[in-house]
Amino acid sequence: MTSSNNSSLDSTLIPASWNSGSLISSIILGLCCVLGLPGNIGVLVVILRRSSRRLNFTLCLMLNLASSDILCLAMVPVWIYNILYDWTLGHAVCKLATFLLYLSLCSNVLTVTLLGVHRYLQVLYPQMWNRLGRKGEVVLLLALWGLACALTSPTVATRDVVDGGLHCQQHKGSDAERVAVLVLQTLLGFVVPFSVLVTSYCRLHRRVNQTALFSSAKMTRLVTSVVVAFFIHWIPVHIVNVVDIAYIVLGASLPESSIPLPCQRSTAARIARCFLFFNCCLDPFLYAFASRRIREQPKSSSSGENRMNMPLGL
């Protein structure tokens, strides 16, 4: 009698959607929000308070990165709600939340990529970058957010309240539409930015290392951490994308072969999303605080050495 009452009570208090996977992913996302928001807000405060003069472009990118991370982490409670409960906020909020989340993620990727390109041009081709001018830098930042909006649009267009209004997620659509969105996300959201990032830093390191003025130990560690962190945090979600593409393609040509693929897909997708949010939590420590430590090392008598020793142009 007691066990049946307890079972009835548990089923009343604990929603059916709550399972170990959803609870663990929600806890991880909550921790990322609690740790990441203060860190990124701290970056904003430190940069703005310590920069009495006009901000240089790298500091603007740092502010841009922190702002996109804050926007992303601010959406965490919405997605925890989406994981644990049935979606009751309507179609408009689903679209808006999706737009803000993916806008922040796209802006994050583009900002990190631009940090690498800017550092490469600033050190090796400073005159070329200086010709851009202040107005050109403003246009570049506006173009970054415009491109982020453009990259976000396909995802927003294919996301809606599905399963009878239970979840805010990607709707089925046609196979061609789903594959196109997934391929676009993987190519423009990972393959191209990661290739540009690695190429910029590798060429920068090779060229600067040839000079006798450059001591590369600390910068090498920072650059390596930037590239490795980008790869580790973004590759899981794109592996899930590749699996989804394989499932769609195999489902059309070899239906029997595609049956096992969705079994663990939901769990894998939740883990991949946790990596993305953890990346936003790690950014202030990886970029701002690490850059500050290296910047505060004893200054060299050579202005050229000073410029090369400052990571990411700070």
Score class of each variant (00 low, 15 high):
185 Q>H: 15
78 V>L: 02
205 H>E: 13
53 R>S: 14
95 K>W: 05
126 P>C: 11
19 N>E: 02
218 K>A: 14
81 Y>K: 04
54 R>D: 03
306 N>L: 12
307 R>E: 14
298 P>L: 02
304 G>T: 15
34 V>E: 01
158 T>I: 15
251 G>P: 08
19 N>D: 08
196 V>W: 09
45 V>R: 11
166 L>G: 00
314 L>M: 14
114 L>W: 03
302 S>N: 05
171 H>M: 09
115 L>S: 02
79 W>K: 11
69 D>C: 15
305 E>A: 12
37 L>P: 03
80 I>D: 03
291 S>L: 01
72 C>M: 04
62 M>A: 12
52 S>F: 14
138 V>C: 10
47 I>M: 06
26 S>I: 08
83 I>R: 04
101 L>I: 08
102 Y>D: 02
291 S>I: 10
148 A>K: 04
139 V>L: 07
216 S>N: 14
80 I>C: 09
247 Y>I: 03
39 G>M: 06
288 A>P: 00
96 L>C: 10
90 G>P: 04
306 N>E: 05
71 L>C: 05
264 Q>Y: 15
109 V>A: 13
140 L>R: 09
236 P>Y: 09
313 G>S: 10
96 L>N: 02
246 A>H: 10
65 L>S: 10
160 D>G: 14
201 Y>R: 00
264 Q>S: 10
113 T>H: 10
42 G>S: 14
282 L>R: 08
215 S>A: 07
269 A>D: 09
115 L>D: 02
226 V>L: 07
45 V>Y: 07
232 I>W: 05
264 Q>P: 00
210 Q>V: 13
266 S>I: 06
175 D>V: 15
43 V>Q: 11
62 M>G: 07
273 R>H: 01
32 C>A: 02
157 A>N: 03
137 E>C: 14
4 S>G: 00
242 V>L: 12
233 H>K: 11
6 N>R: 14
174 S>I: 12
200 S>K: 07
220 T>V: 13
223 V>F: 05
30 G>Y: 01
242 V>K: 12
79 W>E: 01
197 L>Q: 13
177 E>S: 15
75 M>K: 09
158 T>F: 08
289 F>A: 13
233 H>C: 08
94 C>V: 01
142 L>S: 11
234 W>Y: 09
136 G>R: 03
277 F>Y: 02
153 S>G: 00
116 G>K: 14
110 L>G: 00
125 Y>S: 08
196 V>H: 09
143 A>Y: 04
244 D>N: 14
6 N>T: 12
306 N>M: 08
58 T>W: 00
311 P>R: 13
165 G>Q: 02
158 T>V: 15
128 M>A: 13
276 L>K: 01
76 V>H: 02
182 L>E: 03
56 N>A: 11
42 G>M: 10
98 T>E: 02
216 S>D: 11
119 R>A: 13
